[in-house]
Design a binder for these strands. Structure first.
Lengths: 389, 389
DNA sequence: TTGAAAGCGTTACCAG
DNA sequence: CTGGTAACGCTTTCAA
C-alpha cells in the first residue's frame, strides 16, 4: 500500500547517490553489469540465480532448511561471482562474527605473543575473529583503543600485561568495564590483578607471587643469602607481586631481606645489564640475581660475563616467564614458567562461555577471577654460592 | 506521498522485530528508556539533544561546519550516554575506519612481531585499524582467512613471511590478489618474492639474497672454507634466496661449494641443534656455521657447546634476521639485519598511498615492488678458523 | 520451502 | 547551518 520501501513502482525521487540494483518491486532490470566496480552484493547473487535475496541469505547462513536445488544454484553463482558476505551489513542486521580485541603495550614482547596466540587460536577455533591493538604504554591511546573497539562492537576486549597501579587505574578500568558492559561487550584482564568492587570484568591471572616465592626459595635453599633483586618497575603490579613473593621466601627462610639489594627498572635487557653493572661497580656483595623477567636475566647475565664472572659458577641467575629465550641462553636459565598461552585460551573461553551462558545477566557483579598456576623450571643457571675471596 | 520510509503516519505493518524509536515522522514518543539494554544509537543522542540525527552525525564526523551551540549540546549528550558510533553501520553507509589485515603463519616469531609492529604503528598513526590472523602454515586456513578479511571489507591484506614455492602457490596468490582487488581491497606480500605476471599485488621485500651473499662473504674473507649451511626448508622462498646468496659468495671467492654441507630444515631452534649435532656425529669437517635465521644459529650454538666446542674460537657462527636474540646470545651473534619494522611501515604506506592516489586505477597491472636493503651486523661470533688438529 | 519487505545505525544528499 | 530521509547489504519475520 502507501508505505513500503523499494516498492512504489518507480515513483521514487531522483537518486544521485549512485548505482542501485533492481529499482521497483518486480522489475528485474537495470542490473549492474557483473564484474563492475565494487563488491558483488547478495542481490547480484539473487538475481543471477533467479531467486530471492532471502533464499541466498538462507543458503549462505546455513541455519535454515533449503532445497538442494536452491543451494546448488546459489552456490554456483557465489563461486562465479566470487561473492563474500559483507560482514558489516551482516553485523548490522544482527548476525556477524564475534570479535575479540587484544590490547597490548608492546607487541614485541615474547610473553605477549604467547597470550595472543592462545587467544587467537581459541578464537579461530570458534570462528571468531581477533583484532590487535598496541597502546605503547600510553593511557590516552589505551582509552582511544577501547573506544575504537567498542565502536567495532567487539564481543570482548582483552587487556594484556601488568598494570601500573596508579590511583587513577582502578577508576579508569572500572569505567572501561562499565562502558563495555553497557555496550554488550566485556572486559577481560589478563595477567593483572582483578578490579576492586562490583565490576563486570573477568580476570585471568597467574600465581605471580607464588612463582616468585618458589623461585626465591630455590635460590635460598641452594644456599644463597645475598641476592640482587630486579623485580621491575615499582608501580607495575606484576613487579610488586614478584617482589612480595621473594620477600616472603626470605622471611620463610629466616634470611634478612636487604632493600638495598632491590633495583627497580623496566622489564628489558638494558635494565638487567645496567643494574648488574652498577651493582658491580658499587661493589655490592651478592651471589645470585633474581630477575623480574627472563629478558632482564639475559641482560644481567651479559653484564656479569662482561665483568669476567661466570654463570653459575660465580653468580647464579634466575628469571621469570619461561619464554623460549630462557632455554636458549647459555647456561640455560632456571626460571618460573607462566602459562601464557593457556591464559590466552582461558580468557577467550571465559568470554565465550559467558556469551552462551547468561544472556541478560549483564550489569556488573559477576567479575570472575581465574588464577592459573606457575612453577619453577630448573635448568642450569643456579649453583650453590661459591666462597668468594 | 505514497512512498517513503518511516513516514505514512502510523500506517505501518506490525513490527515484531523489536524495539524502534520514534515511530512516525514527527512523533517523538515511544522513546527507549535511556540506559536500557544494548548500545545507545545516534537517534538516542539526537532525541535527547533535541536535534536531528543528521546534525549528530555531522558533529561526530567533524567534517562539516556546525554551530558551537549544536556541538556543545550534542557532545554533552554523547558523554552522558557514553555513546560511540557503530562502526558497522558507519562502514555500511560509506564512512568507516580503514582496516588492514595482517596474516602470519606463526605469531610467536620475533621477525613477525616487528613487521606487525611496523604495520600497526603506521596504521594507528593514520587512524587505521589492524586485524591479525594466524594461518599455522595451513593453506586452507589461509584461504579461509583471506575470505574472512574480504568479508570485513579490509583495505588491504598483508601476507607475511616466506612462501612455499609450490606450483599452486602462484595461482593461489594471483587468485587472492584478483579477488581482493575486485572487492576494492588489495594484497600486499611482505618478505616474499613478487607474483609473476600482471597481478594487482604490492610486494615489500628485502634483499634476501644480497644479505646472504654479504654474510657468506664475511665468513669467507675471515678465512673459512668449510662451512655448514642451514638455509631452512628447501621449498621456502627465503631459504632458497639465502642459499643462492651463499652460493654466489663461494663462487666469487673461488671456493668450491659442497652441497653435502647443506642441511635443510625448519627455521627453529631444534633444527639448528639437531643439524649441528648430526654433522658432528657424521664428523663433517667445518669451521663455521651459516644459519638461516638467528634462532637456528642459537640452536646450533647450543649443540656446539654441548659437544665441548667453543664459539667462535673453535667454530664461528652467523645468523640471519637480527632479532633481539642475536645480541642477547653469548657470544653476540654476527648476523644480517633485516629491516622488519620498516617493511611493515612501508607496506602500510604503500596501501595508504595507493588509496589516496589512484582511485579507479584498479584492475591489475600495478604490482609495485619495493626492495629494502639488508646489511651485515658484525658482533662476536666469527673468528678466523682455528687450525684443527 | 520460498518470496517480500522492514529494520539494523550510519552517512550524505537535498531542501529549507 | 540544520532537518528529513534514501541508501548501504544483510537477516529475519510474516505470508504464501
Amino acid at each position: 500500500m502507501g508505505y513500503g520501501f523499494r516498492t512504489g513502482a518507480g515513483r521514487g525521487p531522483a537518486r544521485p547517490w549512485g548505482r542501485r540494483y533492481g529499482e521497483g518491486a518486480a522489475t528485474v532490470s537495470e542490473r549492474k553489469a557483473s564484474g563492475g566496480a565494487g563488491r558483488a552484493t547478495i542481490r547480484d547473487v539473487a538475481e543471477r540465480a533467479g531467486v530471492s535475496v532471502a533464499s541466498v541469505s538462507r543458503v549462505l547462513s546455513g541455519n535454515y532448511p533449503v532445497s538442494d536445488e536452491l543451494r546448488r544454484r546459489v552456490m554456483k553463482v557465489v563461486r562465479d561471482l566470487d561473492y563474500v558476505t559483507n560482514a558489516h551489513a551482516r553485523s548490522l542486521a544482527g548476525g556477524g562474527t564475534p570479535t575479540v580485541a587484544i590490547l597490548i603495550n608492546n607487541i614485541t614482547g615474547a610473553a605477549f605473543a604467547h597470550v595472543a596466540k592462545g587467544v587467537e587460536g581459541a578464537a579461530s577455533l570458534r570462528g571468531w575473529l581477533s583484532l590487535v591493538g598496541t597502546t605503547g604504554d600510553d593511557p590516552e591511546r589505551e582509552l582511544a583503543l577501547v573506544n575504537l573497539m567498542r565502536q567495532q562492537g567487539v564481543a570482548a576486549v582483552v587487556l594484556l600485561g601488568g598494570a601500573y597501579d596508579f590511583d587513577e587505574y582502578q577508576l579508569r578500568m572500572a569505567r572501561f568495564a562499565r562502558s563495555l558492559d553497557a555496550a554488550g561487550s566485556h572486559l577481560v584482564l589478563v595477567g593483572r590483578p582483578p578490579l576492586e568492587g562490583d565490576v563486570a570484568a573477568t580476570t585471568v591471572d597467574y600465581d605471580n607471587e607464588g612463582g616468585a616465592y618458589a623461585m626465591a626459595s630455590h635460590l635460598l635453599s641452594a644456599g644463597h643469602r645475598r641476592v640482587l633483586v630486579l623485580p621491575g618497575h615499582s608501580e607495575l603490579t606484576t613487579a610488586q607481586g614478584r617482589l612480595r613473593g621473594a620477600r616472603r621466601a626470605f622471611e620463610a627462610y629466616g634470611v634478612p631481606f636487604d632493600p638495598g639489594m632491590v633495583l627497580h627498572g623496566p622489564y628489558d635487557y638494558g635494565h638487567g645489564y645496567d643494574a648488574v653493572e652498577e651493582s658491580l661497580r658499587r661493589e655490592l656483595d651478592f651471589t645470585a640475581v633474581l630477575a623480574g623477567t627472563d629478558v632482564v636475566a639475559a641482560g644481567a647475565m651479559h653484564a656479569l660475563r662482561g665483568a669476567g664472572l661466570r654463570v653459575p659458577e660465580d653468580i647464579s641467575i634466575v628469571g621469570y616467564d619461561d619464554i623460549p629465550l630462557a632455554s636458549q641462553l647459555t647456561p640455560q636459565l632456571t626460571t618460573v614458567h607462566v602459562p601464557y598461552e593457556e591464559m590466552g585460551r582461558a580468557a577467550l573461553r571465559a568470554v565465550a562461555d559467558r556469551r552462551e551462558g547468561g544472556a541478560g545477566r549483564r550489569g556488573g557483579g559477576d567479575g570472575a577471577h581465574l588464577v592459573l598456576g606457575t612453577h619453577v623450571v630448573v635448568r642450569n643457571s643456579v649453583q650453590p654460592p661459591a666462597r668468594r675471596s
